[in-house]
């Protein structure tokens, strides 16, 4: 059906991202295809958890198995926006959430006054006018965590079903930010871990609720006693896609988690982050905060290992 309608159709699950954008005329569609008919189940295993895309963020955040085994993911889901939005918004929707920019997430009238931008109706990026691309920011809280937890999404489309690692789901472009084809539906997410994997998500935003992340760190670590066997560190809201901090991951491998190591790793992780002046607070400050959220996230993982709780 989506293929039939082409670009004039969109899928809607919780609608918390879509409806404001329709009202502000950032999206213009003739047909909405509701996904309410899709199942909404969480299937838990000891090293794997499969979550249907239609599971609400609130359900995921409160799921005790997720909280215990995939702690960072439950935390990330519970930190998205505000309680009423988490009751409607789905985990699939948050993986697909549109990239954001404070030149773009504005009403039609405002964008008309500002001059339309490249992401919608215009031909230049208002944040970086000399750049040929769109610099809108990936603002999903759960996507970085899903990547850190080795997540795989299921996609169903006219050409059949397929699976894709979450890390391959995004592109470094504010407009074409997903590798998912428009007529494909994200049907579910599988998270995977070893028995000794611990995870945490730290989100930075101005207020305790409602706000999108202005920096975030998702950390998943496989630990053998004191030392790090494997580790994934993925940043949110510092690029057009969830940014994996490969250098820091490599650095941590085999290391013992002491203060100095954590600090150094956070420093390395923050390096590739490149926030621009298109979200709340100054991008200089946001850049400096990346190492802080990474450090806090690693520290939380470290505390879980020591039995301090998550």
């Amino acid at each position: 059906m989506a293929e039939e309608h082409g670009a004039r159709a969109m899928f809607v699950a919780g609608g918390t991202d879509l409806f404001p954008k329709l009202k502000r005329r950032q999206f213009e569609v003739e047909t909405l295809i509701g996904l309410d008919f899709l199942p909404r189940v969480i299937r838990n295993g000891s090293t794997e958890c499969a979550i249907d895309a239609g599971v609400t963020l609130a359900t995921a955040a409160h799921d005790s198995h997720l909280q215990a085994g995939f702690t960072g993911y439950a935390q990330a889901a519970g930190l998205v926006s505000s309680p009423p939005l988490r009751n409607a918004g789905t985990i699939g929707g948050n993986l697909c959430v549109d990239t954001r920019c404070n030149y773009y997430d504005m009403t039609y009238e405002w964008r008309k006054a500002a001059g339309f931008c490249i992401k919608k109706d215009g031909d230049i990026c208002l944040v970086a006018p000399s750049s040929p691309r769109c610099w809108a920011v990936s603002s999903s809280d759960t996507a970085p965590m899903a990547i850190a937890l080795d997540g795989v999404v299921g996609l169903a489309g006219p050409e059949g079903d397929r699976e894709l690692p979450v890390s391959a789901l995004y592109r470094d472009d504010g407009i074409e930010y997903m590798a998912k084809r428009p007529a494909e539906v994200l049907t579910g997410l599988r998270l995977r871990k070893s028995a000794n994997t611990r995870s945490a998500y730290v989100k930075l935003r101005r207020r305790g609720s409602i706000d999108f992340p202005i920096a975030g760190a998702a950390v998943a670590m496989e630990l053998d006693g004191e030392s790090v066997i494997g580790c994934r560190i993925v940043l949110s809201a510092v690029a057009s896609y969830p940014l994996e901090a490969a250098a820091a991951e490599k650095f941590l491998k085999g290391k013992r988690l002491d203060q100095e190591t954590i600090r150094e790793a956070a420093e390395l992780a923050a390096k590739p982050a490149k926030p621009l002046d298109n979200a709340d607070l100054s991008h200089f400050w946001r850049k400096r905060m990346v190492r802080v959220v990474v450090e806090q996230a690693i520290q939380r993982v470290s505390d879980q290992r020591a039995g301090f709780g998550g």
């Binding site: 809607v12 918390t16 409806f19 009202k23 505000s82 309680p83 009423p84 009751n87 409607a88």
Partner: peptide, 27 residues
């Protein structure tokens, strides 16, 4: 605000708070 940013229009759907400004009755 009618954009999901303030919570004023909260109603309960099956007992859970959701924003009526972001809900389609047909669903």
């Amino acid at each position: 605000c009618e954009l999901g940013e303030c919570g004023t229009c909260t109603v309960l759907i099956d007992g859970r708070p959701e924003l009526s400004c972001l809900s389609l009755p047909i669903q």
